[in-house]
Simulated assay, not measured.
Amino acid sequence: MSGHDTYEHLISLLDAARVDYRLIDHAPEGTTDKVCALRGHPASEAAKCIVLRVKVDRRTTRHVLAVVPGDRRVDLGAIRVLFDARYVGFSDAETAERLARAVPGTVLPFSFDPDLEVIADPDVVAQPKLYFNAARLDRSLLLSGSDYEQVARPRVEPISSTVDA
Rank of each mutant, 00 (worst) to 15 (best):
S160I: 10
E149T: 05
V151W: 12
G3Q: 13
R155A: 12
V81S: 09
D115M: 01
V54M: 10
R58A: 15
D121P: 12
R136F: 00
D25W: 04
G105V: 08
V107A: 08
K48P: 09
P28V: 15
T95L: 02
A96S: 15
H9Q: 14
H63T: 09
P42V: 04
C49W: 04
A46F: 13
A100F: 03
S44P: 03
E157V: 06
V35F: 14
C49M: 03
I79W: 04
T32M: 10
V124R: 01
V35W: 15
Q127V: 12
L130H: 00
F112Q: 09
T61N: 04
R136M: 08
A126E: 12
V64Y: 09
A120T: 02
D138M: 02
S44Y: 06
V54A: 06
A37T: 13
V156M: 02
Y21V: 03
L130D: 06
L65V: 00
P109L: 06
D113S: 11
E45I: 05
V151C: 10
D92L: 02
R58C: 07
T6G: 03
A93Q: 10
D33N: 08
A27M: 15
S44L: 10
D20F: 10
H9D: 05
L10F: 07
M1Y: 07
A165D: 13
D147Y: 01
A126H: 07
D25N: 12
K55L: 12
